Amino acid sequence: MKYKSVFDIIGPIMIGPSSSHTAGAARIGRVARNLFGREPKWATISLYGSFAETYKGHGTDVALIGGILDYDTDDQRIIQALEIANDKGMKVSFIEEDAIPEHPNTARVFIGDENGELELVGISIGGGKIEITELNGFKLKLSGHHPAILVVHNDRFGAIANVASILANYEINIGHMEVSRKEVGKLALMTIEVDHNIEDEVLHEIEKLPNILKVTKIVD
């Protein structure tokens, strides 16, 4: 893996003790919160590999819940995240999984309330960096370190080109883009990482396109 700066190696400003087990975990939780769009009423988190083995001692549990509460990696409230979640009435549970993951620091986050649910799989790859590898059953690769939009759409000809055309019209540069689908001709998911945060007017224009079902942004 290539690092761009010394901060990629030592990690971000954070609550300790580990960039992989704490900062990365907090970012996984916060991406889940960002995508869900509100504070959930419950969170069930399955932990794999070293996350499952050391999550209590390394603070992975409080970091994940801190992220779900929308705390940044250096927020002192992360230390009391479990107590804060309990005070808010959020039901939290952790499951230690025996399955061997592709990456040792893996968490499956399942959150929801009476109005909806969200499930994602995130891995902490070191130095506070993360990747989201699955979202509601769709395979993807999302770093969580760049602004991005996720576009749920019908798997139809022209849908991808139409979205890319709107971004080009607004001079928005695409850094990474991929498309995942569960079945040909059914639902698909575009994951688009861009260089700058996208204004809501751009999202509204994309939402009006044929075959576009939902557009969600992740801010930097």
Rank of each mutant, 00 (worst) to 15 (best):
Thr216Ala: 05
Gly11Met: 06
Asn211Ser: 08
Arg156Val: 11
Ile78Pro: 04
Pro40Trp: 15
Thr191Trp: 10
Ile9Met: 07
Tyr170Pro: 08
Asp200Leu: 04
Ala25Tyr: 10
Glu201Ile: 00
Thr106Arg: 05
Asp155Pro: 06
Asn197His: 01
Lys208Gly: 01
Ile65Val: 15
Glu183Cys: 10
Leu140Asn: 01
Ala107Thr: 09
Glu131Ala: 04
Glu199Pro: 00
Val62Phe: 04
Asn105Phe: 09
Ala188Lys: 00
Glu53Met: 12
Glu193Phe: 05
Arg77Trp: 09
Ile100Phe: 01
Leu82Pro: 05
Asp8Val: 00
Glu53Pro: 06
Glu39Pro: 01
Asn162Cys: 03
Asn173Arg: 10
Ile174Ser: 11
Ala159Ser: 14
Val219Cys: 01
Met14Ser: 07
Pro210Tyr: 09
Asp98Ala: 07
Glu171His: 15
Ser50Glu: 14
Ser5Phe: 09
Lys141Met: 12
Asn173Asp: 11
Glu39Ile: 14
His196Gly: 03
Val215Ala: 12
Pro40Glu: 13
Ile198Trp: 04
Val109Ser: 04
Glu199Cys: 05
Gly175Pro: 05
Glu207His: 01
Gln76Lys: 15
Arg156Lys: 15
Thr106Pro: 09
Glu96Gly: 12
Leu189Met: 15
Ile132Gly: 00
Thr73Gly: 09
Ser180Leu: 07
Arg27Ala: 12
